[in-house]
Design a protein around this nucleic acid. Structure first.
Length: 222
DNA sequence: CACCAGGGTGGTT
DNA sequence: AACCACCATGGT
């Protein structure tokens, strides 16, 4: 069951360190997590750049801005009207709870549910926030992870993200490792598996720098 | 031109 | 529970 560590090592050897949000503020991570939904990071980055230029990258500044202003600024991220309302509400929520310092005292399961209760924050976004902005020991289950593990023949219940999440969280030591693992899985997915069910160029099949046999699991895709 | 990207929500069957 | 339409920009 502990094939995740060797998998992460070979992914890192292949793609190098990812360093998502390495020099970003905690609130910027929250903003990024919401804005990047169903779009590219480059588009989300432009939106964040617009917010920064207008000095609207703090909890209070976003909470005080009107949705129309936010919508204009985050336009490149797509779904901008929807996201503007949700972003403002999310900032207002964090402010209402006394900011990050107070939220840091909340237990992970409770904190996760609190974020899930926000409009526009689903399982993946909540876990990105918990993992990257709060340093909680959380693994982000996304489409890339499910597909990769399925291809590798990792036995997991396809109907339960929670089970897979828990399994990976138990296999890796801390938040940093889980964050890096998720980033590496995304890097792999973007490079090789983008919108291709058969994934002809996928290194998990042939030209694999970290072949399934190498990490001790069965390769179903072969 | 079509298809998709680091999702989530609300409605229908 | 499994679908569906919708949200919308920017890249290929």
């Amino acid at each position: 069951m502990s094939m995740f560590r060797p998998l992460m090592r070979s992914l890192r050897a292949h793609f190098g360190p990812q360093r998502w949000w390495h020099d970003a503020s905690r609130f910027e991570i929250v903003v990024g997590a919401l804005l990047v939904q169903r779009t590219t990071w480059s588009n989300a980055e432009r939106a964040i750049g617009n917010l920064r230029q207008r000095r609207i990258l703090s909890i209070d500044a976003v909470a005080r801005s009107d949705s129309e202003t936010l919508a204009t600024l985050i336009r490149p991220a797509g779904f901008f009207r929807t996201k503007a309302v949700r972003l403002k509400a999310l900032a207002a929520y964090i402010a209402s709870q006394g900011g990050f310092a107070k939220l840091d005292r909340v237990a992970t399961p409770i904190l996760r549910q609190n974020f899930l209760d926000r409009e526009g924050v689903g399982p993946e976004t909540a876990d990105v926030i918990l993992g990257y902005a709060f340093g909680r020991k959380v693994f982000v289950v996304d489409a890339y992870a499910r597909r990769m593990f399925e291809r590798l023949g990792v036995p997991f219940d396809a109907s339960s993200d929670a089970a897979l999440k828990k399994t990976v969280e138990s296999a890796l030591p801390d938040s940093d490792a889980l964050n890096e693992f998720h980033a590496l899985i995304v890097a792999h997915g973007k490079r090789y598996c983008r919108a291709r069910p058969d994934c002809p160029a996928c290194p998990l099949r042939k030209r694999c720098g970290y072949a399934a046999a190498e990490i001790g699991v069965n390769d179903r895709s072969a």
